[in-house]
């Protein structure tokens, strides 16, 4: 029996009077990759942001590593060290060098010794082939490079779960591959548990252990990865896959 790292039960979220997430329930095993698929506006990103406390939800339960999350600012701040997140627009801090961006979390938040973290950060940079940019500023980097740094920045906190929010959506096609390869490596070699929102269907097909298909804020389908792409259970998912033409 594999260990469950995350369980979500009956999550509901509203923007004003409009309900954007309806009774979301799912669970995720340690070491597995969950991809959130669905048309734009289906609530994928909102769901992801709820899992990191960036959005408040009205009702429901999130259980992370066996403990129920009490959604206070302080608790989320603690939890975010365990749940890393990478955004579509990379969002490195423009006022800091690459290395400073990476060190900020481990040194200032986790109070780990700077020398140790710096060694680790350099190793991570080497792994993504960007060690020569340690002292550059984000503006000197391409989009793909920035996004790989943003992933390294999140990894430096030693998270147990990583959230990826359309991380390739603003990249040029030739930049996309490097980023996706890195994520694939994290899954294959490091057995990182991940939740990925993406429009790259080929990539999702390769990497997903589990697929949640969302539409209008509801889970339409919760299926093991391979099965979803070969034999979607619902008509909606089938149409969606056809429309993506991958």
């Amino acid at each position: 029996m594999t260990e469950k790292i995350l369980e979500v039960e009956d999550l509901n979220k509203f923007y004003g009077n409009k309900q954007v997430l309806h009774d979301i329930s799912f669970s995720l095993n340690k070491g597995e990759v969950l991809t959130l698929l669905g048309p734009s506006g289906s609530g994928k990103s909102t769901l992801l942001r709820c899992l990191n406390g960036l959005e408040e939800f009205k009702s429901g339960t999130i259980i992370f590593e066996g403990k129920k999350v009490i959604p206070t600012a302080k608790n989320w701040q603690q939890l975010r060290q365990k749940i890393g997140m990478v955004f579509q627009s990379y969002d490195l801090f423009p006022n800091m060098t690459v290395l400073e961006n990476i060190l900020l979390g481990p040194v200032k938040v986790q109070k780990r010794p700077k020398a140790e973290v710096e060694k680790e950060a350099k190793a991570l940079l080497k792994r993504v082939h960007l060690e020569q940019y340690a002292n550059s500023y984000p503006r000197q980097l391409s989009g793909g490079q920035k996004q790989r740094i943003a992933i390294v920045r999140a990894l430096a906190l030693h998270p147990d779960l990583m959230l990826f929010d359309e991380v390739t959506a603003s990249l040029d096609p030739e930049m996309v591959r490097g980023v996706l390869e890195l994520i694939k490596q994290l899954s294959d070699e490091d057995h990182m548990t991940m939740i990925i929102v993406t429009h790259e269907m080929n990539f999702a097909k390769q990497i997903a252990d589990q697929v949640l298909f969302l539409e209008n804020g509801t889970i339409v389908e919760d299926t093991p990865g391979k099965e979803f792409f070969e034999h979607p259970k619902t008509k909606r998912a089938e149409e969606f896959l056809e429309s993506m033409e991958f």
Binding site: Q77, F87, F93, G105, V109, A154
Partner: peptide, 22 residues
């Protein structure tokens, strides 16, 4: 930008650290 604040939060920075560093 709001997303700068969020990516600071996502790294586990508290309110004070967010002010000072970001």
């Amino acid at each position: 930008p709001k997303i700068q604040r969020e990516s600071g939060l996502a790294l586990g920075l508290n309110k004070w650290q967010l002010f000072i560093y970001v």
